[in-house]
Design a protein around this nucleic acid. Structure first.
Lengths: 213, 213
DNA sequence: ACTAGATGTAAACAATTGCTGACTTAACCT
DNA sequence: AGGTTAAGTCAGCAATTGTTTACATCTAGT
């Protein structure tokens, strides 16, 4: 049932877009990135299991088989997304002055959408049942909490300061919870609170859990 | 709630067939409950999309077709789980004295497992893409936050006290975040913190966000 | 220009999904 | 007892899943 005459005369008509035929260069790196972006959006908003590789490929405007080619499998693509998100989280959280933590959290939480830190962390929380993915997630969370705790006197191998680390993780969890709740449920007034609405209570929260030394 | 009736009902089907079929009682209500319990566990720990009806039926030791019979569909079963969890959350949170909120939160967070309030709320956060499920979730979250806020001076239709409601929702989100983080990632020391470890910081957190009036 | 490898496409695979219909078996009632 | 109906079983469907395979087409190096 080959409907296509296999001749060199058959030229691609491109019936969908009437515009200037966007001469499609073949660029592996670009399609890889397109897939990564689409996958990150889908995984973040729908979760791993609810996302199909065809969803991702369609969003990226790319053939499904290329997922297997470039990432070996759906799980491989997910891990790549997690790694990218992890790198970005480390990059972003690495340069926050200790005295501006509440403002930074407020800003990141207020900024919905998968581009912001909130989206990255939400993605990090998504589970695929894959062991490697769990490692990546754990690594990022540990890094972030230690980053936060070290500004308040926590030092590794100092059992006395473990309380500080616990409190830092609670701050992290609180921020994460707000982000998740905001993005998953239209609960007013939280879900539509602005950065200004959030920064005050958040300062109270951070100061209470991690008093400036 | 998983009390096995000591009666004659214990009927674990021997998969190796043939054997003297243990006399099994037919009890629609009990079967329904078995399915609900198994589904709640699966949905809570694996999420909606990653859970299959066959998983649930096997866990419950019940035939798959009975899910369709008793709950019409997988979505119907999920909604039933959500409704049950919502009822239990309302029942539990309804009777917490305002001055013992930190202790209550600490106790609930420390108590892992799907039986506790933490599990119920984690389940509430799970999404199935179903509109009715979203309504149930929103209703419970609204109820819980208003319950918490009203003890601190919030009144409906008083725009001035909206700040209090926002802060109550932030407390709720913080607790939720800790619960989710603890159950999803072995992040030390948070994931193994005991109730005693948590209650102190939690009191600081609640007092900071919702100062006793 | 011409070939070789990279890139993309189409179709199909086996496995799994939620769900259904016809069937069997147990429980209850006179 | 018998017989009626609820409760449970079985096998299989149609759709969807992730993945692979064979093929087409573009790009780059000579």
């Amino acid at each position: 049932m080959t409907a296509d005459p296999p001749g060199p005369a058959s030229r691609k008509a491109d019936p969908t877009t009437g515009g200037p035929a966007p001469r499609r260069r073949r660029d592996a790196a670009e399609t890889r990135q397109l897939l990564l972006d689409a996958a990150r959006r889908r995984f973040t908003s729908d979760g791993y299991a609810a996302t199909t590789v065809r969803d991702i490929a369609d969003d990226a405007g790319v053939n499904v088989a290329l997922i297997s080619r470039y990432f070996a499998s759906k799980e491989g693509l997910f891990e790549a997304c997690l790694r990218a998100a992890g790198d970005e989280v480390r990059r972003t959280t690495g340069k926050v002055p200790p005295d501006q933590v509440p403002e930074a959290i407020a800003r990141q939480i207020a900024d919905l959408g998968i581009a912001g830190l909130t989206g990255q962390l939400t993605l990090l929380l998504r589970s695929s049942g894959d062991a490697r993915a769990d490692e990546i997630r754990l690594g990022v969370l540990r890094y972030s909490s230690e980053q936060l705790a070290s500004a308040r006197g926590w030092r590794p191998d100092e059992p006395d300061s473990e309380r500080v680390l616990l409190r830092a993780q609670m701050v992290l969890a609180a921020g994460l919870g707000m982000a998740v709740l905001r993005s998953s449920t239209p609960l007013q007034p939280l879900s539509s609170a602005t950065e200004q609405d959030l920064v005050g209570p958040l300062r109270d929260l951070v100061d209470a859990l991690l008093p400036p030394r």
